[in-house]
């Protein structure tokens, strides 16, 4: 019996060693030290639009498909600098509009905002409760839009 080319392509890959699978070959991970996980958590729930996948005392983890990232919050009081400068680069302005709506309806303050001629948001910056900045942006003009 012959197998389809798709089955063959599946078979040619050895089983992964990782206990978790994700769509990209590898994934970026951020572990952020924070003073108060409970206080900072609503910001990240709003930013990522979901509940954490793991949540326990002094720890929360977001397992994200978009953006492809494993993001964790660790209570490390003595070394929580709050100086992170993070962001999400998006493919289309409509994704910024969606995120912006979510951020604004949660009452989060937008620190900076950049709009295009018709008033649509291209870039916005928000800050978590400990001072880490997140900039959401679409590069519409390669070379001149600096992030």
């Amino acid at each position: 019996m012959t197998t389809s080319i798709w089955q063959q392509s599946q078979q040619s890959k050895p089983p992964i060693d990782s206990a978790v699978d994700f769509p990209t070959p590898s994934r970026f991970h951020v572990a952020l030290n924070v003073v108060d996980v409970e206080l900072i958590l609503p910001f990240y729930q709003t930013l990522f639009g979901k509940q954490p996948d793991t949540h326990s005392d002094g720890y929360a983890k977001f397992d994200l498909k978009e953006p492809p990232m494993l993001f964790s919050l660790n209570r490390v009081v003595h070394n929580a600098k709050g100086n992170g400068d993070f962001g999400v680069q998006l493919n289309n302005v409509h994704q910024i509009v969606e995120m912006s709506d979510r951020i604004k309806s949660a009452g989060m303050e937008v620190l900076e905002q950049d709009t295009i001629d018709d008033g649509t948001v291209r870039k916005l910056t928000v800050m978590d409760s400990e001072g880490n900045r997140w900039t959401l942006f679409v590069v519409l003009n390669a070379g001149t839009d600096e992030e």
Binding site: E66, P67, F86, V88, Q89, N91, V93, H94, Q95, A142
Partner: peptide
């Protein structure tokens, strides 16, 4: 705006990448 309106190239990223979004860090 409707989704169709955002299909206009003026709303699309000038930089191509494989996913819908990707993390950014500035050090």
């Amino acid at each position: 705006k409707s989704t169709e309106q955002f299909a206009d190239s003026s709303y699309r990223s000038a930089v191509h990448f494989c996913t819908q979004s990707r993390p950014h860090i500035r050090l």
